[in-house]
C-alpha cells in the first residue's frame, strides 16, 4: 500500500495538470513506475465505458432503494388503514389512504410537547457544545503550550468512554444539583463533546500557517484571531459538526430514558418508545406507530434537508482548503 503511495505521490506533485496528449515515455517517469503496464491494461477499458457505468448505476440504485425503503414503508404504513399483527398488509399500495393515524398518534403519544422538548434540548446542547468546543479546538490546533499533546490525548480518551459507564454517576450529579426530571438535566451532561473538539481541531489544523502568520503580523491577538480569522474560515466545519450534534442530541435515547421520568418532558424517541410499550399491552396498531415515528422524524429530517447544502459545502470546503 505504501509502495503505491511512494511511487504515485511525486507524480501529482511534480506534474501540474496540462492538456498534454499521449502518455509520457517510461524513461521520463523513473524506474519504479508501474504505469506503462497499467496504461496498457487500462486502455481497452476506456473503449467500453458502458459496463463500468452500468455496474455503478446498478450499485447506486440498489443502495438508494435500501436506504430509502424504511422511510417509504413508514410513510406507506402511516397513511394506510389501521394494521395489527392479526391483519397485516404488505401490499406496496395501501388499500385506502387516510390520515387519521397521525391525529391518533399525536394525541396518544403526547407528541406536541415531546417535539418542543426535543428541539429545545437539542438546540441548547448545540449552543453549549459550540461555546466549549470551538475555543478548545482553536487552542489545540493553533497554539503551543505545555501539556498540549497530553491534554489532547485526554480529550480523545473521553471519546471512548461509553455513555453507560458515566450514566449512574451523572444521574447522581444531576440529582444533587436538583436537575433530575428537568430539561436542564437533559442538557447539562452533553455540554461538551470530545468528538466535536476533535473534528474542529482537525479542520483548523489545515488552515495554512501563512494565514495565521499574517494575522499575527497584523497585530491580531489570541481572541481576535479566533473571532475574525479562525471562526469564519472554519465555518463549513462548524456547520457540519452542528448538524451532527443536533441529530445526535435529538435522537439520544438512553439518558432521557433515565432522567425524564415525568411524561411532560419526554423527548421524541422516548415518547415513541412509550407509545410502543403502552400499546403492546393490547394489540399494537402499526399505522399509528408508523405515524408517530414519522412525526418525530420530521425535525431531524427537516434539519437534514436544510443542512444538506451546508453539509455538501463543508465536504467540498475540506477539499478546497487542502
Amino acid at each position: 500500500m505504501s509502495a503505491g503511495t511512494n511511487s504515485d505521490a511525486p507524480i501529482g506533485a511534480s506534474r501540474p495538470p496540462t492538456p498534454a496528449g499521449p502518455p509520457a515515455p517510461a524513461g521520463r517517469r523513473g524506474p519504479a513506475a508501474p504505469s506503462p503496464t497499467a496504461a496498457r491494461a487500462a486502455r481497452p477499458r476506456r473503449r467500453l465505458p458502458g459496463a463500468a457505468t452500468l455496474a455503478r448505476l446498478a450499485l447506486l440504485t440498489v443502495g438508494i432503494v435500501v436506504a430509502v425503503l424504511p422511510f417509504v414503508w413508514m410513510l406507506r404504513t402511516a397513511i394506510g388503514p389501521s394494521q395489527t399483527a392479526l391483519a397485516l398488509d404488505s401490499n406496496p399500495i395501501p388499500s385506502r389512504v387516510q390520515f387519521h393515524s397521525f391525529n391518533q398518534a399525536w394525541h396518544a403519544g403526547d407528541l406536541g410537547p415531546a417535539l418542543l422538548t426535543g428541539i429545545a434540548v437539542s438546540l441548547a446542547i448545540l449552543a453549549l457544545q459550540l461555546a466549549t468546543a470551538v475555543p478548545a479546538a482553536y487552542a489545540f490546533a493553533c497554539l503551543r503550550f505545555r501539556g498540549r499533546t497530553a491534554l489532547f490525548a485526554v480529550v480523545l480518551v473521553t471519546l471512548l468512554v461509553p455513555a453507560q459507564v458515566t450514566a449512574v454517576p451523572n444521574y447522581v450529579t444531576i440529582s444533587a444539583l436538583g436537575f433530575a426530571d428537568t430539561r436542564v438535566g437533559l442538557v447539562l451532561p452533553f455540554m461538551t463533546h470530545a468528538g466535536m473538539i476533535f473534528m474542529l481541531r482537525q479542520y483548523m489544523s489545515t488552515i495554512p500557517a501563512s494565514v495565521l502568520d499574517a494575522a499575527r503580523m497584523d497585530g491580531l491577538g489570541t481572541w481576535r484571531t479566533l473571532r475574525s480569522i479562525i471562526v469564519p474560515l472554519a465555518a463549513p466545519a462548524i456547520a457540519s459538526v452542528s448538524v451532527f450534534s443536533f441529530l445526535l442530541s435529538y435522537n439520544e435515547y438512553l439518558w432521557p430514558l433515565l432522567v425524564a421520568r415525568s411524561p411532560g418532558i419526554a423527548t421524541p424517541p422516548l415518547a415513541l418508545a412509550r407509545l410502543m410499550t403502552d400499546s403492546s399491552a393490547i394489540i399494537p396498531d402499526f399505522a399509528e406507530l408508523a405515524a408517530a415515528a414519522l412525526i418525530i422524524s420530521l425535525p431531524s429530517l427537516a434539519v437534514f434537508v436544510v443542512a444538506q447544502r451546508r453539509l455538501a459545502a463543508g465536504i467540498t470546503g475540506t477539499g478546497a482548503g487542502a
Binding site: 443502495g63 438508494i64 436506504a67 430509502v68 424504511p70 422511510f71 414503508w73 413508514m74 404504513t77 441529530l247 435529538y250 435522537n251 435515547y253 421524541p268 424517541p269 415513541l272 418508545a273 410502543m276 406507530l289 408508523a290 408517530a292 415515528a293 414519522l294 418525530i296 422524524s297 431531524s300 429530517l301 434539519v303 437534514f304 434537508v305 444538506q308 453539509l311 455538501a312
Partner: peptide, 18 residues
C-alpha cells in the same frame, strides 16, 4: 447524496419501530 445520507439522520427508535 440526499438518499444515501438519509439513514444517518434517521431516529434510531423510529427506525427500530419500522
Amino acid at each position: 447524496r440526499f438518499a444515501l445520507f438519509l439513514p444517518v439522520s434517521a431516529n434510531i427508535v423510529a427506525m427500530a419501530v419500522v
